[in-house]
Amino acid sequence: MNELIYAIELTITGLLIGSMYSLVALGFVLIFKASSVFNFAQGAMTLFAALSVVGLFPIVGFWPALALTIVAMCGVAVFAERVIFRPLIGGAPLVIFMATLGLAFMLEGSAQIIWGTQPYGLDLGIPIEPIIIGGVYISRFDLVAAGVAGLLVLLLVLFFQKTKIGLGLRAVADDHVAAQSMGIQLRRVWAVAWALAGLVALAAGMLWGARIGVHFAMSLIALKALPVLIIGGIESVPGAIVGGLIVGVAEALGEGFVGSMIGGGVQDIMAYLVALLFLLFRPYGLFGEKKIERV
C-alpha cells in the first residue's frame, strides 16, 4: 500500500472518529457553560441513555423507545436540577463537581438495577461496509456519525446565539449570581442545560453503542473527551468539534506511523501529548475564554 494513501486513510479515519469524540465532549461543554463545573456524570448519562433505548426497544419498538428515553433524560435533568444542584447554588465549583460524581454513581447503579449487567447490540441500520475512493477505504458508518455530530453542533450554535435561553446560559456561565440579579431564571436555565446534555448523551450513546455495543464499559468513552476539552476549550462548542478532530487525527497518525516504529500502543498517549502541549502554550484551549483572575 502506498504510504500516501495509507496516510490519507488514517487521516480520514481519525477525522471521522474525532467527530464522535466531539459528540461526547459536547455534553461536558453544555454543563460547563451553564454551571462552570466539569460534569463527571456525562459518561454515565451516555450509558444510561443508550441502555434505556436498547432496553425499551424490544418492549415498545424503536421510535417509542427513543421518545421514552428522551423523556427519561429530561426527567434526569429536572431531578438533577431540583434535588442536587438547586440546593448547591452559590456553592464552590468543587462542591458541584462532587455532586456530579454522586449523580454518576446513581445513574450507573440505577441502570444496573433496571437493565441488568448484560451487554446489548444496537443496529441502527447504517451499513458498515466501506466506500472505496481511489484506493482509500472510508467507513459509511463513521460518515453518518460525523454528519449527525455536525448537525448537532450547528443546532447548538444556533441555540446559544439566537435563543433567549441560550443567551441566558452564556450569562449564567460567566457568573450565575450576577445573572440571577439580572432576572435570569437560574433554575430554568440549569434544567435546560442538563436536558440538552442528556439529549447529546443520547445521540452519543446511540452512535457509540452501534459501533462498540451498549454495555457498562461504555461510560469509559467519556475519558476520550478530556484531551478534546483541553485542546478545544471547555466552554466552547466549536472548540469541542475542532478539539475532537485534532485528537482523532493525532491518535490515528500517531498509532499508524509512530506506533509502528516503537512497538505500538501510542494512540491514547498521542491525544494526551497534544493536550499537554496545549496546556503548556495555550492553557485555555483553542477557543476557550482567557480568564484573568485577581488572586
Binding site: I212, K224, G256, G264, G265, D268
Partner: peptide, 15 residues
Amino acid sequence: PLGWPALEQSAAWVE
C-alpha cells in the same frame, strides 16, 4: 498493543 479500555481500535486495524 491497545491501551485500556481498548474500545477504539480503528487505526490499529487500518494498519
